[in-house]
């Protein structure tokens, strides 16, 4: 059996290298976010709302939508050439395979989100320095929970005939609690306060989702 650390290293190195070469997630995550931010600005201002108030929501809408597109894309690349079958056949426990994949996805989506923050600050006049550590904690804990669910769901829906349609339809309702936790936590952090209770909720969700994934992923490793 393969040592766990080797699995993590292999998965991270592979996914980062693939991303550097193909820039899939940069395009589907970050570039898509920019145009989404424009759309949000236009939609909000048309409703006579102050667009400055929309900053937090804009960040999370981008994470949610581009995250869904990105996760779908990541898994499609993983199934090309039957590579996913290669992962299944590796002498690795399903749980560790899952966690290594979550790590890699967090890295890729987290990077996009990191680029997104200064951009949103610019467009929506956010004061990101108000409480930067808590802001980042809110974002990354939220993305981790999103990825923890998505890494499972994308494999689940990949078994169907309508994977591209079903993935967002199944994924988005499941991450509504993550959205609520993330968006509130971010909003509080941007006011310069410490969103402890929301962070705790995000943390609790992460613990539950990651444990579920760790236990259940094995059952998805069949054909």
């Amino acid at each position: 059996m393969t040592p766990v650390s080797a699995v993590f290293k292999a998965m991270l190195a592979k996914d980062v290298r693939r991303e550097l070469r193909s820039k899939e997630i940069f395009i589907s995550g970050f570039l898509f976010s920019i145009i989404l931010l424009c759309a949000i600005y236009i939609a909000v201002t048309a409703g006579n709302l102050k667009f400055e108030k929309m900053g937090t929501g804009a960040i999370w809408l981008c994470i949610l939508f581009t995250g869904t597109v990105s996760m779908n894309r990541i898994h499609q690349s993983e199934t090309a050439n039957g590579c996913y079958r290669g992962l299944i056949l590796a002498p690795v426990e399903g749980g560790w395979l899952y966690l290594s994949k979550v790590c890699a996805n967090l890295l890729l989506l987290g990077f996009s989100a990191t680029l997104l923050v200064p951009l949103t600050a610019l467009f929506f006049q956010l004061d990101v320095w108000a409480n930067l550590p808590y802001l980042l904690a809110s974002l990354y804990l939220g993305i981790l929970a999103f990825v923890a669910v998505g890494t499972m769901v994308v494999v689940i829906t990949a078994n169907t005939r309508m994977k591209d349609v079903l993935f967002p339809l199944v994924q988005l309702p499941l991450v509504v609690p993550v959205l609520i936790g993330g968006v509130n936590s971010t909003a509080v952090a941007l006011e310069g306060k410490a969103p402890w209770d929301w962070l705790q909720m995000l943390l609790a969700m992460n613990v539950v989702f990651l444990s579920l994934g760790f236990l259940l992923y094995e059952f998805l490793l069949e054909e």
């Binding site: 669910v149 499972m152 579920l212 259940l216 059952f219 069949e222």
Partner: peptide, 9 residues
């Protein structure tokens, strides 16, 4: 199999 996993989640 796949449905059960989603049911649990």
């Amino acid at each position: 199999r796949v449905g059960s996993v989603l049911g649990i989640i």
